[in-house]
Amino acid sequence: MAPAAVLSTVTSAVPSWEMVARQRVYWATVYRRTWKGSVFTSFVLPLFYVVAMGVLLGRFVDAGGGSLDGAPSYLSFVAPGLVASYSMQVAMGETTWPVMGMIKWSRTYYAMTASPLAVADIVAGQLLYVMFRTASTGAVFLLVMSPFGVFDSWVGVLLAWPVTVLVGLSFAGVFTAYAASVNSDTAFLVVYRLLVVPLFLFSGAFFPIGNLSAPLQWVARATPLWHGVDLVRMLVLDDVQVGAALVHLGYLVLLSLVGWVLAVWRLGKRLEV
């Protein structure tokens, strides 16, 4: 794409906030019909993870006496990794199938584009809703884990919360763009198996990426989830290295913005034909 075209794509992604606000009734109804199920899973799922991975598996890990990047126990090492990973999964769940559904099945986006709403407004509404969902599930996750004594800094936990939202957003934009570009939902299974699951397993949530071979370490460092996991871990363990933290933050903000613009561009291509 020519630089001028890139610039116009970027500027056309800026929403009218008044139009975004008009969608609150819609998103409130979406939340009202799903919140009962989501409250249950967002409370129970973190508990399962923490008990299985942190407490039970952690006993063996701690007995082995490995190095955990400065974390006092495996439980406190794995907990921040789980929070960040969970945010990625919530973001995927709220964008892939729902976005395709609003294009192909319920065709809600088509109804919206017949109103004064523009594609940029619709994407902003969608992504703000994902941020709301990751913020609420992230808050529950952090609350569920706090009795396990895994957090060293309460200020850090309060700062880690918006970071989990940012992790979700950095995936949500890209996934929305992807969902607007594919024709069949089988594509999401491929993404889930070849992208989301490997990221979940190898981005430093479960073991220090120093355990990986050197080339794989660099692959891990290039993934957004590792930046999210490491930043959340630094914050809740009160072990912030300013330089690295800023790199993590910059990476996540940049990916969020790029994903947002891509989402507006791809959805525009899909709807405005």
Binding site: R22, Q23, V25, Y26, T29, A111, M112, P116, L117
Partner: peptide
């Protein structure tokens, strides 16, 4: 009826 209510909100 809610279909109409939600749609009306898009028009401010």
């Amino acid at each position: 009826r809610d279909n109409l209510m939600v749609y009306g909100s898009y028009f401010g």
